[in-house]
Amino acid sequence: MSEFEPNIVAFLCNWCSYAGADLTGTTRTHYPPTVKVIRVMCTGRVNPLFVAQVLRTGADGVLISGCHPGECHYMKGNFLARRRFIIMRNLLEFIGIDPQRIRMSWVSASEGKKFADVITEVTEDIKKLGPLQSFKENVNGHPKTEG
């Protein structure tokens, strides 16, 4: 059996983390090919229900990454996001989804190395947890995942 490769969805803000991820690429820094990036204008745009939605449609983990506090392009989007995701994370933990699967990070446009580290760390953690099976099956056992 081949090793479990987690499927991680990352919501990256346009101004910091997406540029940071770009820098990771241009500096040829290696990181695990486990993440699927979705660019959003700001972490404040990420509806917390996106998290539940991606987890139930096939992801093993979610990462939301944006500008450092105080550096948001829209002044306060990341602060608002921070509050929302603490609550969403606690709710999902209470329902039985390991909080290690829902991660958040601050990565600025200059932190290409940090982005690679974040992805490596999140990938390692989720590898330890294994695939998220529980949330993907309906009552009849038919998987609802992307095959």
């Binding site: 509050r83 958040m104 990070s105």
Partner: peptide
């Protein structure tokens, strides 16, 4: 609550 924020909101789970 979710329309507001405080600078010192907890963020120990953020990498």
């Amino acid at each position: 609550l979710l329309n507001t924020f405080a600078i010192e909101d907890p963020e120990d789970f953020i990498l």
